[in-house]
């Protein structure tokens, strides 16, 4: 298990995360980083597709509650993730493999740390079994 390196996909809202930072430098540090316009864009299908293609975890970075540029995209995404976690649990995939962080970080300095934290948690869970 020690040589297992989890594959993480990180979606982040461009309005709240990393828009002032050096995109190239951040991209080099964060594997599978997908900046998007509003976390509300992340559908359950995207998360399931990530798992289907071999991801071991999915991290979604959205804006704080009440601060969505599009009114409530972050709240919509949060509801979807909570519902999706029920499906994952029923299929033997630990719900903590999908996490949503609602905060702000224009420089994007926190992102590599958040990805690492989640990777460490997932390392203990091991890879998602492909079926």
């Amino acid at each position: 298990m020690s040589d297992f390196e989890p594959k993480l996909v990180c979606f982040s809202c461009r309005f709240g995360w990393g828009y002032l930072g050096d995109q190239h430098a951040l991209s080099a540090q964060i594997k599978n980083w997908i900046p998007i316009i509003c976390s509300g864009k992340v559908d359950a299908t995207h998360v399931l597709d990530a798992f289907k293609h071999g991801a071991d975890g999915v991290l979604i970075l959205g804006c704080p509650a009440g601060e969505c540029h599009y009114q409530d995209g972050n709240a919509e995404s949060k509801k979807r993730i909570l519902l999706l976690q029920k499906l994952l649990d029923a299929c033997g995939i630990d719900p903590s493999r999908v996490r949503m962080e609602m905060s702000l970080d224009p420089e994007g300095k926190k992102i590599p740390g958040l990805v690492k934290n989640m990777s460490d948690t997932i390392k203990k869970l091991g890879p998602v079994k492909m079926v």
Partner: peptide, 10 residues
């Protein structure tokens, strides 16, 4: 199921 989640959440 995944699509229903999107609709249900909203």
């Amino acid at each position: 199921g995944a699509k229903t989640i999107a609709a249900l959440a909203s």
